[in-house]
């Protein structure tokens, strides 16, 4: 009888302990989730601040200042810099030369 009683109490204890452990892990997960949400909120604020700082530093005036007088030509209109860097023939030749060296990825048909 005593053994039954002990078993009953131990059983209840084990159940309770198990339930408590589960509750604790749920709490832990909820806590981490809540912390994460609040952290995301803080990061968003930080992103906003950085975005404002970046925006102020990349206006055309600031970019010109950064480039300096020597490199201001980089700001020249696009059509004046439209030069043929590579010829189509060169592209074709290079493509052929490079192709065998590239390992074929599985599932990608050439």
């Amino acid at each position: 009888m005593f053994a039954k009683l002990v078993a009953l109490i131990l059983g209840f204890g084990a159940c309770g302990g198990g339930l408590l452990a589960m509750r604790q892990s749920r709490l832990q997960a909820a806590h981490e989730l809540a912390e994460a949400r609040l952290r995301v909120e803080r990061h968003e604020l930080r992103v906003r601040e950085l975005r404002a700082q970046i925006a102020e530093r990349i206006t055309p005036e600031r970019v010109l200042e950064i480039l300096g007088a020597d490199n201001a030509a980089l700001m020249r209109p696009g059509w004046t810099r439209r030069v043929e860097l590579v010829s189509p023939e060169w592209i074709g030749e290079t493509h052929e030369a490079v192709q065998p060296a590239l390992p074929a990825s599985p599932g990608v048909t050439p």
Binding site: L27, A30, H31, L33, A34, E35, R37, L38
Partner: peptide, 15 residues
Amino acid sequence: RAAYMRDAWGRALWI
């Protein structure tokens, strides 16, 4: 708006 339960140290327990 947000409301969350906090622990004794003021940390967020759960939402």
